[in-house]
Simulated scan of single mutants.
Amino acid sequence: MSKAPPAKKVAPPPPGCTLDINDPQVQEAAIRIQASYRGHRSRKELREKGPPRILQELKDVVLLEGSAAKLECRVSAFPDPFIVWSKDGKELKDGPKYRYMFEDPDIVALVVRDGELSDLGQYTVSVKNAFGEAYDSARIIVEVPAKIEKGPDSIKAKKGSTVTLKAVISGEPAPDVGWVKNGEDIEEDDRVFYEIDDTSTILTIKKVQASDAGKYEIFVENNLGVDQSFARVDIM
């Protein structure tokens, strides 16, 4: 019957290499090592989870003239991010016109007050912290009732001359425009016609005749409203 080999003797550690776990200095070193590891793990998690993210995107909104509109989105970021809103590339300052808002833990919003046509455009939110930056954009669509800002002036003209009647108009969506003479729609031809652009309309009457005298009215209309103005043309 064979015998088990004799157990090997474990050599004692060299002098000065023993650790006493009850030694206060050893315990303090162990605590520092553990804290350092936890700090490394926390920094790793922050690098992975900390960069800002857009969780719910901005959506286009309609702004009625004179009212307010709000753009909002949900974000995720740790530590808390720095928020900047801009319109068509220009930063917007928090104030009476543009109001930065923070709702719940993760909702950021911009309120645009006293809506006007110039508020139409693309709005961008920038969400930034030490670990990165995220962006999102949406449009504010402004709706303004059709309006005649300045009606045509009445005029006295000589036979054979050219008469122009001009009106300054506004509205969004762009309004439909119509000209009327003495209650009847004007039929355009080479001598009597009108032009329309974004902010005005001009009625032209070439080689005016006695029959061109009368009351000329302009009408503008969109889905939000109607406006009108008139002028008289007298032929001398």
Rank of each mutant, 00 (worst) to 15 (best):
D212Q: 09
V168D: 14
R53C: 02
E143V: 11
G121L: 09
A138T: 05
I141R: 03
D88G: 10
G16S: 08
D197G: 09
I33C: 05
E149D: 13
S67Y: 01
V127R: 02
W85I: 02
D23P: 10
K206T: 10
S86I: 04
L110C: 03
E187Y: 04
D197N: 15
T201D: 03
W85D: 01
I205D: 04
P145A: 10
C17N: 11
A77I: 00
I31T: 13
G214H: 11
I148A: 04
D153E: 15
E217T: 14
A68Y: 05
G171M: 07
K90P: 00
K3R: 09
L55G: 06
N182H: 04
S229K: 07
A157W: 01
V168Q: 11
P173T: 07
E48M: 08
E45A: 15
D198F: 10
V84P: 00
V226I: 10
E91K: 12
P105Y: 04
L203I: 14
V226S: 11
Y216L: 10
V84R: 10
H40W: 08
K166I: 04
A167L: 07
C17W: 06
V163M: 03
T18P: 00
L203E: 11
V112C: 00
F131E: 02
L92W: 10
S126H: 05
G50H: 00
P79V: 05
P145S: 07
S2N: 12
A77T: 00
V61C: 01
K147Q: 15
V108N: 02
L46W: 03
I155T: 14
D80H: 10
D176W: 09
A134D: 03
R99E: 09
C73L: 14
F131Y: 15
Q27C: 07
D197R: 11
T162L: 08
W85P: 01
E91Q: 13
D227G: 08
A11I: 11
E217R: 15
S154M: 10
E221H: 09
K97H: 06
A109R: 05
A134H: 02
G178N: 10
P24L: 13
V208K: 04
Q122Y: 09
K150I: 03
A68Q: 09
